[in-house]
């Protein structure tokens, strides 16, 4: 039995090791300081970097997090604190459906809402799509973590003369916060690698741009564009960009672990 379980673990971890391994083998060679600080060079030349895509990914994911994290946390807090209410039931149901929705559908949604009316692609539409993907994940993880806070703590605060809202915010949410931060960072890391919704919204941009109303380059799109291109140097480039994308996700995950470590105690995620 133990042997079977160990076998399952190996099978589960193996693809991950292969992916990481081949990314490092094929991508690390093209990584240099220039890769992080320079713009791409025309086909045929060597060198250059993906500064525009790194900055673009940070901006798009950053704005998505600013929109998605507070909404997801607030909805999760409500669902956990008023579990019987109709709103909570509806929100939970919608979130579960949303969690299973293909991301390209969300991309189409942002396309219809922002890109089509203004008749040009925009980074903001990309942020919107990523935020929509993020909210149900954050809501559900927040709800689960808040449910772990013992009811006795809630009662202690109420008995001390805390108002209901104050108990929710300063005792319950505060106690569950490290886990919620972890859940949110994992949700952010998860959407940072999304490609399909960005193809329909932020599109991509071969120039450096910080205009959130216009098209913007992102790391997943760089991988897509250069991997499907005809040149060997482009393929190298795509490997390196994929490695950087994985590193960004890795850094976020490690940040999530560090955020979980806290002064005293409370729920952990």
């Amino acid at each position: 039995m133990v042997g079977l379980m160990i076998g399952a673990v190996i099978v589960a971890v193996l693809p991950l090791i292969f992916i990481l391994g081949s990314l490092i083998v094929r991508g690390a060679g093209s990584l240099s300081v220039a890769f992080f600080t320079r713009m791409p060079v025309p086909a045929g030349e060597t060198g250059g970097g993906v500064l525009h895509a790194i900055v673009g990914t940070l901006i798009i994911v950053g704005i998505a997090a600013l929109m998605g994290v507070p909404i997801g946390m607030g909805a999760g807090l409500h669902a956990a604190e008023y579990p019987g209410s109709k709103i909570s039931w509806t929100a939970r149901f919608v979130a579960d459906v949303m969690n299973g929705t293909p991301s390209i559908v969300v991309g189409v949604f942002a396309y219809t809402l922002v890109v089509a009316p203004q008749k040009h692609y925009s980074a903001f539409a990309g942020s919107l799509a990523l935020a929509v993907l993020m909210v149900p994940m954050i809501m559900r993880s927040t709800e689960e973590l808040i449910k772990l806070v013992p009811n006795s703590l809630r009662e202690a605060a109420l008995a001390l003369g805390y108002a209901r809202w104050r108990t929710s915010l300063s005792i319950v949410l505060r106690t569950a916060l490290p886990g919620i931060v972890t859940g949110s960072l994992l949700a952010i890391a998860r959407v940072a690698g999304e490609t399909a919704p960005l193809l329909l919204t932020a599109l991509g941009n071969q120039y450096f741009s910080v205009d959130i109303n216009g098209p913007m380059e992102t790391l997943p799109h760089v991988v897509y564009k250069y991997a499907t291109g005809p040149y060997e140097e482009w393929h190298q480039f795509a490997w390196a960009a994929a490695l950087v994308l994985i590193l960004v996700v890795l850094v976020l995950s490690i940040a999530a672990r560090i955020a979980t470590r806290q002064k005293f105690g409370g729920a952990r995620g």
């Binding site: 013992p150 006795s152 703590l153 009662e155 202690a156 605060a157 109420l158 008995a159 001390l160 003369g161 805390y162 108002a163 005792i171 505060r174 106690t175 916060l177 806290q262 002064k263 005293f264 105690g265 409370g266």
Partner: peptide, 22 residues
């Protein structure tokens, strides 16, 4: 109710210190 609970304090069966507070 809030004012009332400040005038009538309560201690529970299990200790309930707030875990995130010193």
């Amino acid at each position: 109710v809030i004012q009332l609970r400040r005038r009538v304090g309560m201690v529970f069966q299990r200790p309930t210190p707030f875990p995130t507070k010193s």
